Structures are given as structure tokens and as C-alpha cells.
Amino acid sequence: MDRLDDLTVLVEVVDSGSLSAAAERLGLSASAISRRIAQMENRLGTRLLARTTRRIALTDAGATFCLRARAILAALDEAEQSLTEMGEEPRGTLRITMPVLFGQMRVAPLLASYLHRHPGVSLEVSLNDRVQRLVEEGFDLAIRAGRLADSSLIARRLRPLRRHVVASPDYLERRGVPRSPADLVRHECLTLLSGSGRTEWEFMAGDRREILRPSGSFQADSLWLLRHAAVGGLGLARLADFIVEQDIRAGRLVPLLSELEVTDEAIHVVYPATRHVSPKVRSFIEHLLTGLNKPESADLPGSADLIDTSGA
């Protein structure tokens, strides 16, 4: 057996709950399964399974390793299946969840062309800024912005995500231009309200991250309201690039502290690490990759009239 076979053995033991059940499903002897697990643990230098007379449980290291193993096996299955299903037409209902503003501004313009191309698919789209649990809530995939929490989900990077500190020319003329994050204490900062309170603003000073809690006289739980407030000259806002890029091009907003922007965030699509990825999921991801990475148009129709009542 090679290392991929070892991963299959480990996952099967965990899913089956015993060495004997895993051995039966894999067509091996229980002693062969036990030997493979022991060899893996010796090679890795750590215990993966805690064995008792009644059950087998993952150690902390084993749980982390098993998550990675599932993701690797799922990716391999997806690669193999993509070859066998190249001619298979996507069909069925595809349930998707995504952040409100990103869905409105960037994904919505791509949906009609996807459905025209794949008439056998129907879409159910949920715009929700709460991180929804895919399997438990019945979603096939999710679009997520920012840094991903470590999980058993498969993630595909769709596009970079930059967050700009911006202000209107009028505000900067009245209040001056901040030259460093420390200068923000002398400015009106437009802040996003969340369940945990005001959000933090993060900057990179060389290799060091600098975290600030800005304050001001205007707070909202909607990024679109913060964008309007910034355009209206009420203060500085820190907003995702897809929200303000048209305003920057039009001169309504000016980017500030650009050399200190965080660059390690991205927009991802995530989906459960199943053994087989359906054609409808794969085709939608490929459609997103193509559509979201085209050069942005100078002005997206209707985007300036969007009304968002929650954060993104």
C-alpha cells in the first residue's frame, strides 16, 4: 500500500468504528489494518488512534490528520471524476449561500448566464452574512470572504480580497490625510457593528500585524451604509475592494494607507468533502472562476442603487 492507501485505511477505520469492520469493507484482515495504522503512527511520530476494549477514538493529532486525509481523498476523487463526467450534463437543484453584498454585486450578474448554459439546473440562493453550516442546513456550496476557519470543507480560491481605508476628497480636505494607523485616532472612523461589538481594523507593518479599534460618531451593521457615509464625507471607512472600487475609479473615494493593506485574504467557495463532487457543483465553481476573474466593467448596472440591510 502507498500513502494514499494509508489515508483510506485511517478514514475507513474512523468511519467504521472498528478495525474488523474496516477490514471487512476494505477486503483486508484486521491484523493488516492494525499493522498499517501502526506503521503510519511510527512514520508520523505520533498516535492517531486511542484504542480501548470497547471502541476506537481519534487522538487530537489524529483528528487533525483525519480532516486533512478526508480533504486529500475528496480532491483525488474529484480529479478522477472530472474526467469520467466531462460529458455529463449538470442537473438538479443547487443550493448556495453567500455574503449579501458580494452576492448582490458580483455573483448576481453571473447567475443568468449559468442557467442559460445549464438548463437542467435550478438554483436556490441564500444571501446571508451568517456563516451557515453546509451539511446541516442542506447547502451544496458556500461563498465566503476573508480568512477561512480550519475545517473539513474543500476550499477553492476564487479571487483575492483587499480591504481599503477610504474617505471622500471633501472629508480629507477638511480633516487632513492620515499617514499612519496611529493618525486614525484623530479622525472620524465609520465602523461596522457586529454581535461582538465594533470590528477591528488590521494593517501590516512589515511582517507585523497592527490591530486597531477605531471609533467615531457613525456606526452601522451594514457595509453599504458605511460606503454611503464615506462618500457623503462623514469619515473614514475600511471596506472590501468590490464595494468601493467603482467609487475610487470615479474619484468619489480616495484610498489611504495602501502600503499597509493586508493581502492574505481571499474570496473562497467551499463545499463538503464528499467522495464524489456532482457536475452541478463543479460546473458552478468553474463558472464563478471564469466570471469573477474577468476585468471589472467601468460601472456595473444598478450597483449604486443597491440597498443592503446587513453586513457582508
Results as ranks from 00 to 15, higher is better:
residue 147 R to H: 08
residue 80 E to D: 09
residue 165 V to I: 03
residue 120 G to C: 07
residue 149 A to R: 13
residue 190 L to V: 00
residue 86 M to N: 10
residue 87 G to N: 06
residue 106 R to I: 02
residue 126 S to H: 10
residue 99 P to W: 03
residue 128 N to M: 07
residue 113 S to F: 08
residue 167 A to N: 06
residue 100 V to Y: 04
residue 186 R to N: 14
residue 185 V to C: 15
residue 170 D to F: 14
residue 110 L to W: 01
residue 88 E to K: 10
residue 135 V to H: 13
residue 149 A to Y: 08
residue 155 A to P: 00
residue 189 C to Q: 05
residue 121 V to Y: 04
residue 166 V to F: 02
residue 89 E to F: 07
residue 111 L to K: 06
residue 94 L to M: 04
residue 123 L to Q: 10
residue 138 G to V: 09
residue 104 Q to C: 07
residue 166 V to R: 00
residue 173 E to D: 12
residue 142 A to R: 05
residue 191 T to V: 15
residue 139 F to Y: 15
residue 113 S to T: 14
residue 173 E to G: 13
residue 171 Y to K: 00
residue 121 V to P: 01
residue 145 A to L: 15
residue 137 E to M: 11
residue 132 Q to N: 13
residue 120 G to N: 07
residue 145 A to T: 15
residue 86 M to L: 14
residue 181 P to W: 04
residue 164 H to W: 09
residue 135 V to I: 13
residue 96 I to L: 08
residue 84 T to F: 15
residue 175 R to N: 09
residue 138 G to P: 12
residue 153 L to H: 10
residue 91 R to Q: 14
residue 128 N to R: 06
residue 136 E to D: 15
residue 145 A to N: 07
residue 172 L to P: 14
residue 93 T to Y: 04
residue 154 I to R: 05
residue 136 E to V: 07
residue 181 P to R: 04
residue 175 R to Q: 12
residue 125 V to E: 03
residue 119 P to C: 10
residue 111 L to N: 05
residue 100 V to M: 02
residue 155 A to L: 02
residue 188 E to L: 06
residue 111 L to M: 10
residue 141 L to R: 06
residue 133 R to Y: 06
residue 160 P to M: 08
residue 169 P to A: 02
residue 190 L to W: 01
residue 163 R to T: 15
residue 158 L to S: 01
residue 147 R to T: 11
residue 145 A to D: 08
residue 114 Y to Q: 03
residue 115 L to Y: 05
residue 180 S to A: 14
residue 173 E to Y: 10
residue 165 V to H: 00
residue 165 V to M: 03
residue 190 L to I: 05
residue 118 H to T: 02
residue 159 R to N: 05
residue 135 V to M: 07
residue 112 A to Y: 07
residue 101 L to W: 02
residue 132 Q to H: 11
residue 148 L to A: 10
residue 82 S to M: 13
residue 165 V to K: 00
residue 156 R to W: 05
residue 118 H to I: 03
residue 97 T to E: 06
residue 103 G to M: 01
residue 163 R to N: 14
residue 168 S to E: 01
residue 156 R to Y: 00
residue 108 A to R: 11
residue 182 A to F: 10
residue 167 A to P: 13
residue 176 G to N: 09
residue 176 G to T: 07
residue 114 Y to M: 05
residue 161 L to C: 08
residue 81 Q to E: 12
residue 122 S to W: 02
residue 173 E to T: 12
residue 113 S to A: 15
residue 131 V to W: 11
residue 141 L to F: 01
residue 184 L to E: 01
residue 128 N to A: 10
residue 143 I to P: 00
residue 187 H to A: 09
residue 122 S to K: 12
residue 112 A to G: 06
residue 113 S to G: 13
residue 186 R to F: 02
residue 184 L to F: 07
residue 106 R to D: 03
residue 167 A to C: 14
residue 127 L to K: 04
residue 130 R to M: 11
residue 86 M to V: 11
residue 169 P to D: 03
residue 114 Y to F: 15
residue 181 P to S: 08
residue 152 S to T: 13
residue 117 R to Y: 11
residue 159 R to G: 00
residue 93 T to D: 09
residue 165 V to L: 13
residue 128 N to W: 04
residue 83 L to Q: 10
residue 121 V to I: 12
residue 142 A to P: 00
residue 142 A to N: 03
residue 120 G to S: 12
residue 143 I to E: 04
residue 176 G to F: 09
residue 137 E to T: 03
residue 154 I to W: 02
residue 143 I to T: 05
residue 179 R to K: 13
